[in-house]
Amino acid sequence: MIQVSPDSVLRLAPGCRLSDHGAPQDLLLIPEGALRMQGPARKIVELLNGERSIREIIEQLQHHYASEDAARIETETLALLTRLRERGVLESA
């Protein structure tokens, strides 16, 4: 089991990238296909630059989505990143 904690610094693994801006759908392209990036998922992945910690990303998201519940943003961001990490889409920077 791989843990993603607020201190983790992650980036997309080689061979994984977001679809171009303006493409018909927001997708995370991976070797075996594509994952649909729904809601704020694309923004979360875009913020992973291999330098920011997950804590900083969550703070930025909480700032950006100020009307949403801050605790929920944290839980859902960690859940998404854990799923992607387990799938091998993300790696430690």
């Binding site: 693994a13 080689p14 061979g15 994984c16 991976i30 070797p31």
Partner: peptide
């Protein structure tokens, strides 16, 4: 040769299966 290619691919940032 394939063994050498595997090592070469690993050194670069590209998806590798």
């Amino acid at each position: 040769l394939k063994l050498r290619m595997a090592a070469m691919i690993r050194e670069r940032r590209v998806g590798f299966t």
